[in-house]
């Protein structure tokens, strides 16, 4: 169990980031442990960025992009989905549970859905042990 998980959500600014914004405007509550990082397109999320999040101690990582057929760069979300699949296998190989990484697809109008998936993912991560990569307190692994 992990009562205080650290979750990074890489959100495409054309859809998921706007959906998170809408969730806030709608006063929909979701897990506060999620730190959102706006990105131009999920296709721009290189594997090293996701791995770096885990290396820095993230307990879970979300990659949230547009619905199929709605990527502003045509196929960035599809590439991201393939990359996430490859990364999940890689996580398992190196010793982390693949469930710590998930890709979601939402539109900018899906504020409520964003709140749902954020809470659902946070619940999953809370149910797991803290990341074994997480540095002990005082070594730069915990937020100030």
């Amino acid at each position: 169990m992990n009562p205080d998980p650290r979750i990074i959500a890489f959100c495409c600014c054309n859809c998921a980031y706007a959906a998170a914004d809408l969730a806030g405007a709608m006063r929909a509550s979701y897990a506060s442990e999620i730190a959102i990082v706006a990105i131009p397109c999920t296709g721009a999320v290189e594997p090293t960025v996701v791995l770096a999040a885990f290396e820095e101690g993230a307990d879970g990582v979300i990659v949230a992009g547009c619905l199929d057929g709605e990527c502003h760069y045509k196929s960035g979300n599809l590439r991201a989905r393939e990359r996430v699949n490859v990364l999940r296998s890689m996580l398992e190989t190196i010793g982390l549970e693949p469930e710590r990484l998930e890709m979601y697809q939402v539109s900018a109008a899906m504020g409520t859905r964003f709140a749902e998936i954020a809470s659902e993912f946070a619940g999953r991560i809370r149910g797991m042990d803290p990341s074994p990569v997480r540095k002990p307190r005082g070594e730069g692994g915990e937020p100030g």
């Binding site: 770096a52 885990f54 890689m90 190989t93 074994p132």
Partner: peptide, 18 residues
């Protein structure tokens, strides 16, 4: 270089878990 960076990061994570 991209693959080298990925591999280096994966190795660091793996060894830290150990």
């Amino acid at each position: 270089v991209r693959q080298a960076r990925e591999l280096a990061c994966a190795l660091r994570i793996h060894f830290r878990i150990r």
